[in-house]
Design a protein around this nucleic acid. Sequence first.
DNA 1: GCACACTCCGAACGGTCGTGCTATTTTCGT
DNA 2: ACGAAAATAGCACGACCGTTCGGAGTGTGC
Lengths: 193, 193
Amino acid sequence: MSKGEETRRQVLEAAVEVAASSGLASLTIGSLAERTGMSKSGLFAHFKSKETLQVQVLEFASEAFVQDVVRPALSAPRGEKRITTLFESWLAVSRDGTAECLFVSAAWEYDDQPGPVRDRLVRMHLDFSDSVAQMFRTGIAEGFFAADADPEQFAHDLHGIMLIYFQAHRLLGDARAEERARHAFSRLIESNR
Amino acid sequence: MSKGEETRRQVLEAAVEVAASSGLASLTIGSLAERTGMSKSGLFAHFKSKETLQVQVLEFASEAFVQDVVRPALSAPRGEKRITTLFESWLAVSRDGTAECLFVSAAWEYDDQPGPVRDRLVRMHLDFSDSVAQMFRTGIAEGFFAADADPEQFAHDLHGIMLIYFQAHRLLGDARAEERARHAFSRLIESNR
DNA sequence: GCACACTCCGAACGGTCGTGCTATTTTCGT
DNA sequence: ACGAAAATAGCACGACCGTTCGGAGTGTGC
């Protein structure tokens, strides 16, 4: 990896952290430069604009999310086990991770702000939703779920469970959030069985 | 209503609109002044700081939310009808309204930013959650829902349904979002019956 | 050994931010 | 109608914003 590529990585790593707690929109070149021990202009040179930086931050976080959530699920046995693994990994990164936090907050920051950032965000959500639906579909084919179950609805419902878990955990500091999420999840599974 | 109170109202009205689409944190005195045809300092005098403005915006939006969602539910007959009314009103303001949008986005903007804004936000969420649980509890007492159903879990689950509806509708522009929300809601009701 | 990318820095730019001050105008109780 | 009080405007401030530009330092291929 070339020198430039490495510093770019370091910057993006720091940027994900900052954006996860302060929001993607409130990323500033200055604070990011200070955090990484670079000059503003030196850092800026790696990204031609702030918008490009934001998009690359999203991309970077997306890779981490896929690595931490989608991959473990895909390497689990098909069917219910795969879905459960997905849920557990998702829960884990939602509890401790930074990337997931970024997606959720960015989703609402940009739901009314047209532009490349929003477009990327939408595509990521759609892609992930499709992945979940596909995992569920495989589960149907293997006989784990009801034949007339709706994969898109399942992906939708599961996402809702994760969103409210996230809010209860991060905003309200609800100690029982995880328990509630598991409860909701198992009921969702049961009703699709 | 005194003159000052009226302009304060007008400012807050505009502020809710702006904050709903751009976020509560990115409210600026300048743009808000321009939007209301005032000078920066003239507007600023009504709120002693930007933070106070943000808190008052939240308060203002909260009143609208209670007016549009909680009150219709409370004036519906107890039990399932009340819960259904709550859901329908909530869905309606989530589809078209601005106040609800503000709460949802602010919840993630401030979930990691300690201070008065976050504190207010947390209290509002807790209060509303309690209201929902209480409505459900009444429904249990009246025999509409299972005696061993969990009111807090119900409030939690319902909130999840609304969050994912909101995201599907606003970010993804999913035309079937409402249909999915209704489906998830009726399944939630059934599993608590 | 020299030219050439690549990487980064320092300084500066026009702009906007929140927030003070001081006037001036408007409102309102009497 | 008048005087106090409230409401608003004008102006300035220091800080930070994204961005540009010219130029150092450094390694690499010829």
